[in-house]
Design a binder for these strands. Sequence first.
DNA 1: TCCACACGTTTGTCATGGACATAAACGCAT
DNA 2: ATGCGTTTATGTCCATGACAAACGTGTGGA
Lengths: 317, 317
Amino acid sequence: MNKPIENPGMLLNISAVERETGLSKDVLRMWERRYGFPKPERNDNGERQYTIAEVARLRAIKRLMDVGMRPGKIIRLPQDELDALRDERAAPPRDAIAPALERDILALLLRHDVPGLQNTLATMLMKQGLQQFVVETITPLNRAVGDAWMRGELQVFEEHLYTEQLQVTMRTAINAFPRQSGEPKVLLTTLPGEPHGLGLLMVEALLVPEGAQCISLGVQTPLDDVHRAALAHKVHLVALSFSAAFPVRQASEALATLRRQLPTTITVWAGGEMTRRVRRTLSGVVLIPDLAATIGALKSWRTHWAQVSHYLAAGER
Amino acid sequence: MNKPIENPGMLLNISAVERETGLSKDVLRMWERRYGFPKPERNDNGERQYTIAEVARLRAIKRLMDVGMRPGKIIRLPQDELDALRDERAAPPRDAIAPALERDILALLLRHDVPGLQNTLATMLMKQGLQQFVVETITPLNRAVGDAWMRGELQVFEEHLYTEQLQVTMRTAINAFPRQSGEPKVLLTTLPGEPHGLGLLMVEALLVPEGAQCISLGVQTPLDDVHRAALAHKVHLVALSFSAAFPVRQASEALATLRRQLPTTITVWAGGEMTRRVRRTLSGVVLIPDLAATIGALKSWRTHWAQVSHYLAAGER
DNA sequence: TCCACACGTTTGTCATGGACATAAACGCAT
DNA sequence: ATGCGTTTATGTCCATGACAAACGTGTGGA
């Protein structure tokens, strides 16, 4: 067997690359056929053996595609132009406090200082309160960590550690709120294929302080079960989260189906990076491309709901 | 476009089935070719359209394969024999307390009573203490929930709710312990392809009360990064968790590679349902097929470590 | 009786190359 | 600029063939 042995010269087979990059085997072969990249060596058995360098490049390309670029345009570009594209998109306006904190957190991650990380996050949380923490600190921080990872300044395991610690911090803070029984009742989850649950937690962290009652199903709930769960729990709102990597097409289809199945009294929210790439409007689905817009959306739901309730009450008389 | 419309007559394409069942497209086509099942209808474009019934059956078969059965033996069996096989394996000896609790929890899940679920779990936890709770309550409960799901008595979303609530409960309990700085320092994670993190949390719940210092990276850490993380954090132990669905072959390869890369002073643990199916012994990797064995393994690590430290100290003199 | 090893069978994964649906980009008329 | 039809780009699916590793079984020796 030709198994991967050493780190520098390690070779990956096509399924390993699929796992690592999120690009399907079909796509990997098709790109090779059409664009000539990646063009891995073959082993004695004719199987593709990808190098670490190819995988890294594929990851970079995938990342750019996730923000809307098209493979044909970027796949042949030399590495430095790829880097330029990446940096170009990465420098949004920063306020005064963020950069300092970001530097601190990145430094802690690079030092692998777990207690320090926990302390810093917990301190910021206490200082700002949960909602402000999520909107003003976590959001840019996630971005900074993501960019640093993409730039190769941060290893995968360092990013994992960050995510994990963040989840612990937020979960603790959310639990500290008294259990709510107010309105609206919100169902939170992601669809199959979306393994990132951080967004759900962030939304929950914004809603719970507003008195909403959140029921999280975790990640990857089949569409049908989202439907059934919404009815079973009698929720007012279904909130789905999609990371940048989620295929827009699949999301649109799923959202349309869900919208069709659910009664109109249940509102559907779709949030996360992916929603920025949605072109056509999805009727009956509220897009929340920006986390900060969540609270506004909640307010407008409440206004709307007050009217509907009033109308329903009138109808029952 | 032929999109899924209604629930009962809903048809799924091959990638949807891949997501739902965890069986790759290649396998689905191969089974059709070799065994004649599943044999889905085709749409106008010649694409496979699987029915809900086929997917349900595929799930049942997958589940049986995950506990060691081989497709050729079971794929042609009629449904009732499949059910019999499933039940056969599902009736382990129960102690006095478990069945009652299991019934309670299942009833709460079916009633979609979130507060009740939280209360029951929290109460049991308080009554038993974290470690006993994990070993004696959670383990059989997981089994009961899994079986109920397989029997079709529980919907996916109900199982998701259970998992989510359980994670919240355990995470809270773990956080209540003072932050440890003792030995051993343990790195916890799963490999790419393994999305189930419940096992990690359960191990953490067993280790933290013993004074171990746990660093969890969450799920799906690339092998290389497990290696790097272990070195960066200077851990004594790397613990990996594998659910029943994880391919043994992939796991063995990965564990062997990891073992080769890590210094011998770092112990590697592999736990979870999958490890029950491992045939050949993996040299230098401690298999923990039973969660209850974790504490024993920790004890024996400590004994061993005391000897090694002594030896090292002697060597330095 | 039990273990080790050789050998046939089962099973999953990979490869190739063709087809096609649909989203995106483009060009043209209003 | 906006809307609409056409072309191009791109991903997904299909069929079939090949093969290696895992599994299981039978045989001979300790």
